[in-house]
């Protein structure tokens, strides 16, 4: 990661405590959440986190196909994450690949602990996440959008899930990395947390961080997640005003 050669404009990513897009080191990108954007879905959400734009749609609980995947005592949450062809500068090849399969699985495991899956035995809850525009932090945006879409679909849940990344760039711990920081930084640490008991449901680390750095990052992420959860709740309630 740190080995990538930086173009001239990104040679210094932090200048006088300000980042390349003008944020402070512990500041999130502007976040907007819209709910109920897809009419034919049971629940849906649209999340804009800076330049990252994500649609999430929930269908079901419905019958699960193929039938061999059916669980007799609980529902199966299936997540399909995909980056659309136009979501990055050079065309992304459509269809599942190694990266999207991984993120689908990771998002599924981030959301599963809060859903009362045992209320719908033998059924399937389908979550489809499409990335319209990718600018780092797509998996955290997918978790934010996914949990709001599930709550909008009337799926019984213990609470919401919010997600946020932190990373090390030029020796500083930054909250919510954007694309240049992600590409030319040293490490990236996305973390998802539940809204009720603040337990971690997703944690990945790309790059190298010391224990102290991770602890510092988690403190930043907790703060960021508190703000994201308030935005999620506001968006969910905003539909019924």
């Amino acid at each position: 990661m740190s080995g990538a050669k930086r173009p001239k404009e990104y040679e210094k990513l932090i200048v006088k405590g300000k980042r390349c897009d003008g944020r402070k080191i512990d500041e999130l990108r502007p976040l907007t959440i819209k709910v109920g954007v897809i009419k034919r879905a049971n629940g849906s959400a649209y999340v804009e986190l800076g330049k990252t734009k994500v649609y999430a749609a929930v269908y079901g609980p419905k019958e699960l196909h193929p039938r061999r995947l059916v669980e007799d005592d609980k529902a199966v949450l299936s997540v399909k994450y995909s980056m659309l062809a136009f979501s990055v500068n050079d065309r992304a090849r459509p269809g599942p690949n190694r990266r999207s399969t991984e993120i689908s699985k990771v998002v599924k495991h981030a959301l599963e602990p809060v859903i009362f899956l045992e209320e719908f035995p033998q059924l399937n809850i389908e979550l489809i996440v499409d990335i319209i525009q990718a600018d780092a932090g797509t998996r955290t945006a997918a978790v934010i959008a996914g949990s709001v879409a599930l709550a909008n679909a009337g799926i019984p849940m213990k609470g919401l899930v919010s997600a946020c990344a932190a990373g090390k760039v030029d020796g500083e711990i930054l909250l919510d990395l954007n694309a240049p920081e992600d590409n030319f930084g040293d490490s990236d640490l996305p973390i998802a947390m539940t809204s009720t008991d603040k337990k971690i449901t997703l944690m990945q680390l790309d790059g190298v961080m010391t224990k102290a750095e991770i602890q510092k990052a988690i403190i930043l992420i907790r703060k960021g997640n508190d703000y994201i959860i308030s935005k999620q709740i506001e968006a969910l309630k905003g539909v019924y005003q």
């Binding site: 049971n42 909008n152 679909a153 019984p156 019924y240």
Partner: peptide, 25 residues
């Protein structure tokens, strides 16, 4: 805690939440 996005009803000692969306079970 609430399980759903819904309407809160408090009657006597009972708290219920009526979901605003969902499929028929």
């Amino acid at each position: 805690y609430s399980k759903y996005t819904g309407l809160l009803k408090k009657r006597d000692h009972m708290i219920t939440v009526i979901p605003l969306n969902g499929v028929y079970v």
